Simulated scan of single mutants.
Amino acid sequence: MSTEWKMQGEYLESCTCRGACPCIYLEPPTEGDCTALVGWHIKNGQYGDVPLDGLNIAVALNAPGPMAEGNWKAVLY
């Protein structure tokens, strides 16, 4: 059994890679590692019967190499 969910909102990303971050395309980071701050603002959303409207989420992370290889350090706010 799965819970239905949906979200609409805004996404923001900033990282230490040069230009557009290649990590989201499973490419190696341009600077050897990737330190990033990623944020979402949920304008409208729900998870099952739980409303998500107006919530903000932030992730601070460091990937020591290509993200697909793991070994991330991350904090979720």
Rank of each mutant, 00 (worst) to 15 (best):
M1E: 14
E4W: 07
M7Q: 10
M7D: 07
M7T: 14
E10Y: 03
Y11T: 09
Y11Q: 10
Y11W: 11
Y11L: 11
L12W: 12
C15A: 11
C15G: 03
T16S: 13
T16G: 07
G19W: 03
G19A: 06
A20N: 10
C21F: 02
Y25L: 07
L26G: 08
P28F: 00
P29R: 00
T30L: 03
T30E: 02
E31R: 06
G32E: 04
C34K: 01
T35V: 14
A36I: 04
L37K: 08
V38K: 02
H41F: 14
N44I: 10
N44D: 14
Q46H: 11
Y47T: 10
G48F: 08
D49Q: 09
D49G: 11
V50W: 08
L52P: 01
L52D: 03
L52G: 04
D53N: 08
D53G: 05
G54D: 02
G54Q: 05
G54E: 04
G54S: 04
L55Y: 09
L61K: 05
A63N: 04
P64R: 03
P64N: 06
G65K: 02
G65H: 05
P66F: 02
M67N: 02
E69H: 15
W72M: 10
W72Q: 06
V75Y: 15
V75T: 13
